[in-house]
């Protein structure tokens, strides 16, 4: 029971901090002081107190978008084991639901964007779904490799690996899957080199352009949901990258928190040292992620 409470608490409280850490890392690289670590929380509180403005062309779909996105992200978060903690919701085959919860969230985000009738938002939606077509196979192949390696179709068992740990033949596929999952993480959470979360030019935006018309609390919900998405995908990646556990609950939890903060520092570093890819080169990166995951599968079954 304690583990479940810790899981839910981590899932609800920790995600915005990742954005704070990323912002601080980028500020450090640029030689600035940067916003405080807790700035994303202040932003969320500020947004929650504002009023909302709705365009007269929008319908209920526009309002449903952020809500569905947040609930999908939260449910996905309940299905993923965080570090050594088991996930509160687990059943055989839940990896399919897990992958398609993100699909559902994306469907509603793009529908809400199309609902505004703005040409820019339509463009953003088109880009979002185009790139999603390429990240989804990579995510599925990665889950397939993990399922094959651990012999289970349940996310908890699949990510924790077999009880005696992964056998030595699995290292090469796991490295490949780790690289693939990292690219998927960057693409799904709209970070550089796929998308620039700070861009202010509608023509080059992917994700940001879809949420231009949202304001106030609904926009806060969108920000919160995207931080949860990064948290969830990050914890999936951490299982592949650092599959160590001690068995002591509190040590494991603090280890997990340290790992995920390290992951956000890594993302911040990548954002600082890399330029964003040209829009037409993004598919190359995503196809490469799919290829790495399929090589991993090939290595496992050959």
């Amino acid at each position: 029971m304690t583990e479940k409470i810790i899981h839910v608490a981590l899932l609800l409280i920790l995600p915005p901090l990742l954005f704070g850490v990323i912002g601080k890392t980028k500020a450090w690289f640029a030689g600035r002081v940067g916003p405080p670590l807790l700035q994303p929380y202040y932003d969320l509180i500020k947004l929650a107190r504002k009023s909302m403005v709705f365009s007269r062309t929008t319908t209920w779909v526009f309002r449903a978008g952020p809500v569905v996105t947040l609930s999908a992200a939260l449910i996905a978060g309940l299905m993923v084991p965080l570090g050594a903690l088991d996930s509160p919701i687990a059943f055989t085959g839940d990896l399919i639901l897990f992958a398609y919860l993100f699909g559902l969230a994306r469907f509603f985000t793009t529908s809400a964007a199309l609902d505004t009738g703005s040409p820019f938002e339509g463009m953003g939606s088109a880009r979002e779904v185009t790139f999603a077509c390429l990240t989804e196979p990579a995510l599925f192949l990665a889950l397939l490799v993990l399922a094959k390696a651990s012999g289970s179709l349940m996310l908890t068992d699949l990510l924790h690996g077999p009880a005696e740990g992964f056998s030595s033949g699995m290292v090469a596929p796991l490295v490949l899957v780790g690289i693939g999952l990292f690219i998927v993480l960057l693409a799904e959470t709209c970070r550089i080199p796929v998308d620039d979360p700070n861009t202010h030019l509608e023509l080059t935006m992917i994700h940001e352009v879809m949420v231009l018309d949202h304001s106030g609390p609904l926009f806060g919900v969108i920000l919160y949901a995207s931080s949860i998405k990064m948290f969830v995908l990050g914890s999936v990646l951490l299982h592949v990258a650092f599959p160590f556990k001690t068995g002591e609950v509190w040590i494991d939890v603090s280890l997990f928190v340290l790992e995920i903060l390290f992951l956000s520092i890594l993302i911040g570093t990548i954002e600082s040292v890399m330029a964003r890819l040209q829009m037409r080169h993004v598919p190359y990166l995503l196809i490469a992620a799919t290829l790495f995951c399929s090589f991993g599968f090939l290595l496992l079954v050959r």
């Binding site: 290292v171 490295v175 490949l176 490469a288 790495f292």
Partner: peptide
């Protein structure tokens, strides 16, 4: 030993593809 070796070799494979794609 084989684990570390295989990890390095897999990274070499990834770098090959990166060289092709840049």
């Amino acid at each position: 030993m084989t684990d570390a070796l295989n990890a390095i070799l897999v990274i070499v494979l990834v770098m090959n593809l990166f060289v092709l794609g840049t």
